[in-house]
Design a protein around this nucleic acid. Structure first.
Lengths: 194, 194
DNA sequence: ATGTCGCGAGAACGATCGTTCTCCGATGGT
DNA sequence: ACCATCGGAGAACGATCGTTCTCGCGACAT
């Protein structure tokens, strides 16, 4: 018999895989049951409703995503390379065979108008990403507007890569980011300082 | 009695309003019937299935969107101003009270994994936008990669404005676009040519 | 061994959805 | 005036979904 914690983990694992790959409304609780091996009764004891399961899926995805990005970026020490690493990580992400865009953008488009909690999760996730970028930009001594612009490039790359099924937008965004960083030179680009 | 053509128009009008504002799966055919005043029987004679109605909604939205953008941009004659006008038009669009992002990104996230035709419509729409930008960039004598980058900025602004509910991303994207245009100077920016 | 409790398997239930059908009134041609 | 045809309103149907309930088995305490 599975203890409560691992049952919860397996349920969320299956939910993440299914919701992300097929969309939320296209996946019934029966599909989560079949994929996870957790009975409906137990699913409903762990999560009082499908909406709660969806929200937990989004919360888990948010923290995993942030952790994966940060641990990749942290391998770089110079701040420009850390910023560039964000786009390299995006390239890696886009190259995964079952990449299907940003789960939060997708959920927002599907349920944002009908579920305020889903909309709030999307805002939270995007704000966290923006704040993370803002921290990197700030550490490089550049103005805050650069973080806004880099965030737009990243978001655009995420949806363009999803719709066209190619990771190339990550490279295009990285190039654009490089140019924008040069127009906002920071103290660690001495060759561009005047 | 409504002739077939105006019945079709009213049905599509109601479908566009409902699908865009609430999402596709959240809108039943009964809601389209109530909003349009077109009976179910007639709806199903005009569109053999909900999927066909959805696809027609997307096709109509695509051509309207392209027309609205182009007619706004065409008010400018200098090519830099035409490119900047793209982002000004986005600002206007984002400021509409019922703005809820790009119908194609939303539909792709909701149904792209389950309906190849919907995914194809999204690709078609995004490719048309990219091609349009590429034409503007080309006319300004700048390299094609700039069009890729501007497209990413625009896409990022579209989703960011939707999720945060503010039109500001259009201005941020416009600023970034200005910088990128300066790093790719064209023949109509003589003061920057060397 | 017996009784009890918790659990999984899956049936069941009520709601909703896409789609079709029935009924009936209106319309137009002769 | 009469008949045939069309269309609207909405009931009906079958499928699916979220959620709950029933049943029966196995574990564990005494």
């Amino acid at each position: 018999m599975l203890d409560q914690e691992t049952a919860r983990e397996r349920a969320l694992e299956a939910a993440e895989e299914l919701f992300y790959s097929r969309g939320i409304q296209a996946v019934g609780m029966d599909a989560v049951r079949n994929a996870s091996g957790i009975s409906l009764k137990r699913l409903y004891r762990l999560f009082p409703s499908k909406e709660e399961l969806v929200l937990e899926f989004l919360r888990q995805r948010d923290s995993r995503w942030q952790r994966a990005l940060a641990s990749y970026v942290d391998a770089q020490s110079r701040t420009e390379e850390r910023i560039a690493a964000v786009f390299d990580w995006l390239y890696k992400w886009f190259s995964e065979p079952d990449y299907r865009g940003c789960a939060f953008i997708n959920s927002f488009g599907e349920l944002g108008a009908v579920s305020p909690e889903v909309a709030e999760q999307a805002r939270h996730h995007k704000k966290a990403f923006h704040d993370y970028l803002a921290g990197l930009v700030r550490a490089s001594g550049r103005p805050a507007e650069l973080a806004d612009q880099l965030a737009l490039l990243a978001e655009g790359a995420i949806t363009t890569a999803a719709i066209f099924g190619t990771p190339e937008p990550a490279h295009q965004a990285r190039e654009a980011a490089r140019f924008l960083m040069h127009t906002h030179p920071g103290p660690d680009l001495p060759e561009l300082r005047r």
